[in-house]
Deep mutational scan, measured.
Amino acid sequence: MNLTVNGKPSTVDGAESLNVTELLSALKVAQAEYVTVELNGEVLEREAFDATTVKDGDAVEFLY
């Protein structure tokens, strides 16, 4: 899956889609429990991480 992460191209191997929690784990995001996630310009509530799917071509920003 090809994404733009914090403005840079990134690839997650072996996945066509992941939820936000899985993406944080796959990318080994440090202190993931404290990060705010913006997906395609929309800031996500932490409670929505498990239910929100990240797909090929999406833009993700991790805000600390």
Rank of each mutant, 00 (worst) to 15 (best):
V35Q: 04
A15V: 14
G7P: 01
A26M: 12
K8H: 11
T4C: 13
A48F: 12
F49L: 05
A26I: 14
S25P: 01
T4Q: 07
L39G: 01
D50Y: 07
N2T: 14
V20C: 04
R46N: 06
L63Y: 15
V37R: 00
A48L: 12
T11K: 14
G14I: 09
E22W: 05
K8F: 10
V54Y: 01
D13Y: 15
D13V: 15
A48W: 10
A32R: 08
N6P: 01
A30G: 10
G57E: 03
D58H: 02
T36K: 09
N19M: 05
P9D: 06
N2E: 07
P9V: 07
D13T: 14
L39V: 06
K8I: 13
N40P: 00
K28D: 10
A15K: 13
E47K: 07
V35L: 11
E47P: 07
N2V: 12
K55F: 10
T21N: 11
S25D: 12
L39F: 05
L63A: 11
L24M: 10
D56G: 07
N40C: 04
V29R: 00
E47N: 11
G57F: 03
T4R: 07
G57L: 02
E61L: 12
V35R: 00
N2W: 11
L44M: 04
F49K: 00
V54M: 04
A26W: 14
E38M: 15
G14L: 08
V29W: 08
V29I: 12
A51P: 03
L18S: 03
E61G: 07
S10G: 07
A51K: 14
E38A: 15
V37I: 08
T11S: 10
N19S: 15
M1F: 13
V60T: 02
A59G: 05
A30C: 14
E38P: 00
T52V: 10
A30Y: 12
V60P: 04
L24Y: 00
G7T: 02
N6Q: 05
E61D: 11
T4G: 04
T11P: 07
Y34G: 09
N19D: 03
Y64N: 09
F49V: 02
G41C: 06
E38D: 05
M1S: 01
T21F: 07
T53Q: 13
V29A: 04
L18P: 03
L18H: 03
V5G: 00
V37K: 00
E16D: 13
L23T: 04
T53N: 11
A59S: 14
Q31K: 11
S25W: 10
E42W: 09
V60S: 02
E61F: 12
P9Q: 07
V35N: 03
M1I: 13
Y34D: 09
D13F: 15
L63C: 14
K28R: 10
L63V: 13
A26Y: 15
A32G: 09
V35E: 04
E16H: 14
E16N: 13
L39K: 03
E61T: 14
L39C: 04
V12N: 02
E61S: 12
L44F: 05
L63R: 13
L63T: 14
T21C: 10
V60Y: 05
Q31E: 12
T4L: 13
E42L: 13
D58N: 03
E38I: 15
D58A: 04
F62H: 03
L24R: 00
Y34T: 11
S17N: 09
L23Y: 00
D50M: 06
